[in-house]
Each structure stands twice: as C-alpha cells, then as structure tokens.
Amino acid sequence: MHLRHPHDGPGHGSAAGAAARRPDGTRRALRLGLGGPVGSGKTATVAALCRELRSELSLAVVTNDIYTREDAEFLLREAVLPPERITAVETGACPHTAIRDDISANLEAVEELEDAVGPLDLILVESGGDNLTATFSRGLVDAQIFVIDVAGGDDIPRKGGPGVTTADLLVVNKTDLAPHVGSDLSRMAADAKAQRGPLPVVFQSLREEAGVAPVAAWVRERLAAWRA
C-alpha cells in the first residue's frame, strides 16, 4: 500500500504525506532519504552534509535507529545542528518497515519538525543500518541516497538489490580504505554502471579534501529542481 498523492493541491484536508504544500499553502521542505548497510557511513555523511549546507539552508534530520537514539545522539554530540532540529524515530527492530511499509511515524516526525522549527528547506531522513533491500517509500521522501562502502566488499554493486539499483544517488564511501581492503574501485564503478544505467554514482572519502562536496552538489541540484 502506498499513500502518495502527487497531484494533491494545498495539503489542507489531505491525509497523505507527499503533498508538496503544507496546510498553510507554503511549499514543504525537500525530503531526502539516506539508506544503506550498517557501518557504511550514513550518519557520517549526514553529519558532513549538515556542516556543509547549514549556513545556506534551513535543515533538519530524522534518524531511524535500531537501538532508538544512537545515531541521533552521535549527531547531537557532533553538534552538527541544534538539538531541536534532530528527531529520532523508534522502529521496533525493523528499520526498513518504518521507511517503506509503514511510514506513519516518519511522516509525523517530518511534519512536527516543520511545525516546530520551520520553514525548512531540507529534511534528511536517515534509515537505520539495514540490508541491501531496504528502500524508502515515495510517500516519505522525494529522492533517496544509498550509501555503501568499499570495505563492505567490492562485489556489492554487482550483487545489486533495490538500494544499489534504484536509488537516485549511489554513494560508494570510504574510498581511502580501498588499497587496504583490496577493493577494486574501477570494478565497483563498472558494476554500478551496469546495474544503474544513467543513475549517478559518487565515490566519496570523508577523510580527503573533497569530502562530502560532490554529494552536497547533488543535493543542491535536487533542491533547485524541487523549487522550480
């Protein structure tokens, strides 16, 4: 079941979460999902994006933890955003359910953030680390980023799965580790291209100078398209 009604007019009276306008008629924030396996660097990417974009955009983050508040607490410790802009959704041991099959708690969270600290330009919804089949509902997010890393095995792009194959952006993270774990980046790039066709792929190392800049550039493009 999905609750998307992309052609809803002003959200007044609409129960769906994907309506482009809020009850007061203003455009709601762009919602981007970040998913991917445990330890691939989703939270680190969210933190880096917040640091990169917070001076130019009004931002908020929703985390979907397995053990409730771990990721939210990391973001709070790192002080990437004021605490009132970070919300943790509890997922009952099934993080993929909360971002795909039953998005009601996440929709509550994004709307509460817009009410409390809005107007917002961008809300990042981070999934709890799950598996290669976890993807976001289109009723929750406007676009999704799937984050994998070179240390998880350079065969992951070849194995595919809905995240690798269909995400709007695939991020291959921790490229600085490739020589140490024997991962072949050119093979990963070729496999990703074969799985994804024209969909973009970014190779990222948050420890190197470019850092999150390519992903941030992609986010700015999505935001420009959302506002157009």
């Binding site: 959704v89 099934c94 359910t97 909360a98 099959d101 998005i103 708690a105």
Partner: peptide, 12 residues
C-alpha cells in the same frame, strides 16, 4: 498487522 499505522514499533 500490516495496516500502516505505526503498531510495528510497539511491543505492548
């Protein structure tokens, strides 16, 4: 139980 109303995150 699959009705998407949030019950899955609660153990009662």
């Amino acid at each position: 139980g699959r009705f998407p109303a949030g019950g899955h995150a609660h153990s009662g």
